[in-house]
């Protein structure tokens, strides 16, 4: 063989990796650079930031209260002269303020329910993957079974069964949305746990939970971050779906889904009541999806789905 021990295989692409090593970039920095090159993701992040700021600060700035009914201007189209920049609904409530406040609920549900699904999914997946064997088989079989069930119907059932309140929405959506996360985390854990540094920790007598906590979870960060960004829009969508059916948040609280539902009732006479919340909702979902896509390409260039 012509290959000597100290001349590793170099092909053009590994040569490229060699350059990275020379500059001493960490995988995270690398991913960050790749992300910044993804224009769709960068623009989306920027727009998303703007929407979040608007939703947080907007209601403080706009002079209307969300439940104030302006009887002088019912179903009035967007205009500056009336002071209702994006119009009012059938009972004279300001669409802009209602949309911004509805956005707080939508985003909050998205974040909190994702957190719930994250905790369940990561815990379940990491445990199944780490312990492997029979435990893993049984746990994953359960996931398979639940996977085959019509999950949205169970959210609706949960909403029926318990008194409807916002905490329940978080829990119900999160509790049925953890399956993908569990599967992905399990797969990652399986591959990580056989790596040498985990082996080393185990031989030093670190307890299983310690290994999961200190070695496996940090190494799962990449997939989890990607997955979280993709779960948030899904959950916002589910919430708005429920609210649209009248099974989500209740008056006087509102969310984008509920507003779209209201708007759809009046769309012939006052299309802006539909269009304004619909645009906010759609743009938000669009941006989250692009950011998630960009993150996935940046953190794991091989896996594209």
């Amino acid at each position: 063989m012509t290959k000597s021990t100290d001349s590793p295989v170099i092909d053009p692409f590994e040569a490229a990796l060699g350059v990275h090593a020379d500059k001493g970039r960490s995988p995270w920095e690398d991913a960050w650079h790749r992300l910044l090159k993804n224009r769709a993701a960068v623009y989306s992040a920027f727009i998303m930031g703007t929407i979040i700021l608007l939703v947080l600060l907007g209601p403080l700035v706009v002079s209307w209260e969300s439940d104030f009914t302006d009887w002088d201007f019912t179903s009035s189209p967007p205009s500056f002269s009336s002071g209702h920049w994006l119009g009012t609904d059938a009972v004279g409530r300001d669409i802009l303020v209602r949309t911004l406040e509805g956005g707080r609920i939508s985003l909050l549900v998205g974040l909190v329910a994702t957190l719930v699904s994250l905790i369940i999914g990561v815990g379940y997946g990491a445990i199944a993957g780490y312990f492997g064997g029979t435990a893993d088989r049984i746990m994953m079989r359960i996931v398979d079974i639940i996977y085959a069930l019509p999950f949205l119907f169970f959210v609706i059932l949960l909403m029926m069964v318990f008194e409807r309140n916002i905490v329940l929405i978080f829990v119900a959506i999160g509790a049925v949305n953890w399956l993908d996360m569990a599967r992905i985390v399990r797969g990652q854990t399986l591959s990580i746990k056989n790596m040498e540094f985990v082996e080393a920790a185990r031989s030093c007598g670190v307890a299983p939970w310690g290994i999961i906590q200190r070695h496996i979870i940090p190494n799962l960060m990449g997939v989890v971050i990607v997955y979280v960004t993709l779960t948030i829009p899904q959950i916002i969508l589910v919430e708005s779906f429920l609210s649209f059916l009248g099974l989500g948040v209740q008056e006087p609280m509102s969310s984008w889904g509920a507003l779209v539902s209201d708007g759809a009732q009046d769309m012939e006479s006052a299309p802006w009541t539909l269009i304004v919340p619909a645009v906010f909702l759609t743009v938000t979902l669009y941006c989250f999806n692009y950011i998630g896509d960009g993150l996935r390409d940046a953190l794991d260039p091989k896996d594209r789905l």
Binding site: S4, T5, S7, P8, I10, A15, G18, V19
Partner: peptide, 12 residues
């Protein structure tokens, strides 16, 4: 005998 060192970086 192995040849010492590595082939040059094809980028530079």
């Amino acid at each position: 005998e192995a040849i010492p060192g590595n082939p040059p970086n094809l980028l530079l």
